[in-house]
């Protein structure tokens, strides 16, 4: 089953075509890297998948639901973590968990179980009553990710989740992503770090609103005769005519 499927999906703002006829699919359970320079159209595309923005033309389904007509259904089956920090700093750790669990309609019993499980996995049992603001950034990001998938969504969208985080924490963050993926949650992630791109099952690279390349990292490296993903990305991004 394809969790995301698009056909010539397009978004125009006036004369500007932010996303230009993209067609691809994401398979269930895979880790899909969505790459592109700033202004390439990643965020706009992602907003369409999340039901935050209506496409201008083309087709797309997310978790089996049409993005034009079933955005309410889509919202129930996706998780989302933005590049800005998405928890409430003046709420305690467990209050944040309860809030988002409540918003996604978890029962009290399930919420209590989930909270314990989550705090245990993250080693945050002693920080239950700590205000989120006083946690280190890396912990916050891990907590934000765990909260984003608290309702076991079909797919989770991560918009540059590891921005500004140190390499060790990034590594731990990716372990969480692998765990979630192993549980069957599809991961759709944008990133600026090319070493992270290597962790993905498949990646797509967007240039000027179009998907220029899409395949396994190893295949892409071979195709572009590159030693690492950074070289692949550079040779593609050089074609860009759009500024930031």
């Amino acid at each position: 089953m394809h969790v995301i499927e698009t056909d010539k999906l397009t978004k125009r703002f006036g004369d500007f075509t932010a996303v230009d006829r993209i067609s691809f699919w994401v398979e269930s359970g895979e880790i899909f890297g969505f790459l592109g320079a700033n202004g390439a159209g990643k965020t706009t595309a992602m907003r369409m998948f999340c039901g935050l923005s209506v496409p201008t033309s083309g087709k797309a389904t997310v978790a089996g639901y049409d993005v034009y007509r079933k955005s309410e259904q889509i919202k129930k089956h996706i998780g989302y973590m933005s590049q800005k920090f998405s928890l409430y700093g003046d709420l305690k750790v467990w209050e944040n968990i309860r809030l988002f669990g409540g918003i996604y309609g978890l029962s009290s019993k399930r919420l209590a179980d989930k909270t314990d499980e989550l705090l245990h996995t993250l080693n945050l049992e002693n920080e239950r009553d700590t205000l989120v603001d006083s946690l280190p950034l890396g912990w916050k990001q891990k907590l934000a990710f765990s909260v984003a998938i608290i309702h076991e969504p079909t797919i989770v969208f991560l918009d540059e989740p590891t921005g500004g985080v140190d390499p060790v924490t990034r590594r731990q963050f990716w372990e969480l992503i692998y765990d979630a993926s192993a549980r069957g949650i599809t991961i759709f992630v944008t990133t600026h770090y090319m070493d992270e791109a290597e962790y993905c099952n498949r990646i797509s690279i967007m240039v000027d609103g179009r998907i220029e390349a899409l395949d396994k990292p190893s295949v892409l490296k071979e195709m572009y005769h590159a030693g690492n993903m950074n070289e692949v990305f550079q040779s593609l991004a050089r074609k860009a005519t759009r500024g930031e």
């Binding site: 999340c50 309410e72 919202k75 989302y80 973590m81 933005s82 800005k84 920090f85 998405s86 409430y88």
Partner: peptide
Amino acid sequence: EMGTMEVLLVSPL
């Protein structure tokens, strides 16, 4: 401003 509105709008709320 904090970006939490986006998270709320993506939620079923």
